[in-house]
Design a protein around this nucleic acid. Structure first.
Lengths: 147, 147
DNA sequence: CACTAATATTTCATACATGAAATATCAAGC
DNA sequence: GCTTGATATTTCATGTATGAAATATTAGTG
């Protein structure tokens, strides 16, 4: 196995990801004053049907509990999400999108999709399909080699 | 152009990168007590021939000046790099790997390559070659669409 | 030579990110 | 009912990250 090729491929994957992330962060902040982690958390809430426990967010987003606390703090301060108690278990906090948060999220999700497809626009459907399949394979391989 | 496919491909690229980065971070910290950004900075110094100006590091690593200051502070504290003045321009600081830093870097670079090729081990040479080529194309496309 | 521009680095306020410790609550078994 | 252990969240110390302001120095211009 050619470990130089593996390394080159990894560096390219890393730099592509960094480029796109940097661009997305800039766009989100300038158009919505929302950071990427904040958008990710709102997306997690959206796909969970609107509300979720702190611990479930932490697991889903694969970040630490402490991290979620901070991101939710700032989103709450900005009126995009709210914390509610769960009567039957007073340890739990339920986080949900506020009305304003849900409205902003819809607009952000639409723009996000436009931005991504804009960045990858000139890649042919066929190539993109093939790339996606390969990335799925890579994902399986990595997961096998990590556990 | 299928923007759902573009989005799926992006998510897969992002999650693969996050998985590998997480694994590398864990391995670097447990085996060398060095963080990923610290390794990256040492790698930049190594490939620059051993020493470099702060501003050149910032440009090369595509991070802000303030960030470089902090990473260098901690590497200096741990004895892996040192700051030296440049007599002919007293604004400049030259950062270089110490003897200890260079020695540790050699070991880290070797392990890094082993880890990456280990993670991607079961991917055939042919598939890896193809993936690399596609990622290079993606890189060109993105850069065209960002400027 | 004095003034202004530009360049190099650090400092600051803010926001992530981690893992470990602290706090609060619940659940199970005696 | 009380202890013990598990679960949920927050707090803390540390290390990235950004962009803007502050500082120091150099270079260019009248």
């Amino acid at each position: 196995m050619d470990s130089e090729l593996a390394l080159k491929t990894w560096f390219r994957m890393l730099s592509n990801t960094a480029l796109i992330e940097h661009e997305l962060r800039t766009l989100f902040v300038s158009e919505f004053k929302v950071t990427l982690p904040q958008f990710d958390l709102m997306a997690a809430l959206h796909y969970a049907g609107g509300s979720e426990k702190m611990s479930a967010l932490s697991k889903w987003m694969k970040v630490s509990n402490g991290n979620i606390t901070g991101v939710v703090d700032r989103l709450e301060r900005d009126g995009l999400v709210e914390r509610q108690p769960l009567p039957e278990d007073r340890r739990v906090k339920i986080i949900s999108l506020t009305e304003a948060g849900a409205e902003v999220f819809e607009r952000m999700a639409r723009r996000h999709k436009e931005w991504i497809s804009g960045l990858l626009a000139e890649i042919s459907e066929e190539n993109l399909e093939q790339l996606h399949l390969q990335l799925v394979q890579v994902s399986k391989t990595i997961k096998r080699n990590i556990q």
